[in-house]
Amino acid sequence: MGASLAFPASIMVLIVMLVPILMLFRYSFNHFDNGMMVEGFTLDSYLKFFGDPYYRDVFLNTVYVAAVCTILSLILGFPVAYFLAKSQSRYKSLFIILLVFPLMVGNVVRAAGWMIILGNAGFVNYFLQLFGFTDQPVQMMYTPFAVIVGTTGVVLPYFILTLQSVLEGIDFSVEEAAQSLGANFFVSFYRVVLPIAAPGVAAGTVLVFILCMNAYATPVLLGGTGITMMAPALYDQITKAANWPFGASLALVLVVATLAMATLSNWFIHRRYVKTMVS
């Protein structure tokens, strides 16, 4: 009975996810001749990817941005999730709604907002010049900085909500127990709360990392030509260059790399913290 209930959803997943990926996988081995895809089997596309320093940089940019955004989410998001999980305030649900609120505004709209803030004639530069920190506007748009700020803003609510839901299940009397045994706040946090929160941290960081690796709108709008990431690059290959085999190979590299890194970090966190708690 239980298994059959999952059947319709499983069929959907199969059709909308697995089939396209398999087709891309097949495409990635096709030839690309005179602007046309020709059926066949060649490793040309993969050789191009691994051989061209430009695409190597695109890939490294993507990993770099995703890693920095994930770390920033962890640093900025953990205190918020921790505060929310422990809060007994009657405004708690209001805080949660505030967190969900950005998710209701599209990435493009928010990227437009960042353009106003970070542009050369924007909000930040206005004040920098007003207070005499600089004569010339500081170039922030179309830099990795802008992409990192924008992407972190997009993924942070996901991280906080994921972590908060896991922290919510922790009995915080362990923290009090640690303190009554002589641990100060930081020691009790590091030795007790953090290891117990590890599954939530793992879930949140993996989710955020995957979202960042695959980000499209924010890197295009805030990175422009200044920094190119994988998703925009493969989109360009498919729509502008009509090079389906190469676009498909980029997509598969992205999928495999993302899964590999997510699995690796998950495995590491589990080995370090979680193994002992789950039987």
């Binding site: 009995d171 362990v174 127990a177 303190q179 007790v192 117990i196 002992t276």
Partner: peptide
């Protein structure tokens, strides 16, 4: 602060460190 008081506390839900 709590950690300097040297009290031995036992909690209703044990509060053992699960890890």
């Amino acid at each position: 602060p709590v950690h300097k008081r040297n009290t031995g506390m036992v909690f209703q839900r044990y509060a053992l460190f699960p890890h």
